[in-house]
């Protein structure tokens, strides 16, 4: 049974190579037809504000969020996102992508009200876990 695709996925990372590889992976696994890329928290926030006040096809169902970024990092994005008056916030799943975290950052991430966090690099298995846990669907065997 082919996967029921997500309406839209947003990648937030300042590393173009990471974005390229993740885009390659997501496209190969055919998780979504609509992949958006933001290079920092501010760009991501602009995208969310532009597309999510009403339920549009461009409002991401899944946001994969890097921690360390210039302009606005992952934590700052989450703070600003929390204050946005969006009607369907529950429909937006945010997963943080981290490298090895500083112990105090691990604590910080754990206390956040987000879908979860994954250690980089992103793999097929990790994506499948996200689909299973948050979208009740999985990649074809």
């Amino acid at each position: 049974m082919p996967l029921q695709k997500l309406t839209c996925v947003l990648l937030v990372d300042d590393d173009q190579t990471t974005n390229y590889l993740n885009q390659l992976l997501i496209n190969r696994l055919e998780i979504t037809d609509k992949l958006l890329i933001a290079l920092n928290g501010q760009e991501a926030l602009d995208l969310v504000q532009a597309h999510c006040h009403e339920a549009t096809p461009d409002c991401p169902a899944l946001i994969l969020l890097d921690v360390k970024m210039p302009v606005m990092d992952g934590f700052q994005f989450l703070e600003a996102y929390d204050k946005l008056p969006l009607p369907e916030k529950a429909a937006i799943i945010i997963v943080m992508l981290t490298t090895s975290l500083h112990p105090q950052d691990v604590d910080r991430v754990r206390r956040l009200n987000i879908g979860g966090f994954l250690n980089k690099p992103l793999t097929k298995e990790k994506l499948n876990d996200v689909l299973k846990n948050h979208f009740n669907r999985h990649l074809p065997e």
Binding site: T17, T18, L21, R28, T99, S100, H102, K120, P121
Partner: peptide, 24 residues
């Protein structure tokens, strides 16, 4: 040491990812 080990992780996993992508 912490920052170096942390910051080197991203590029090396990128290289690994690119190598995988190349193989496929």
């Amino acid at each position: 040491i912490y920052t170096a080990s942390h910051d080197l992780k991203a590029p090396i996993s990128n290289i690994e990812g690119l190598l995988d992508a190349l193989l496929t």
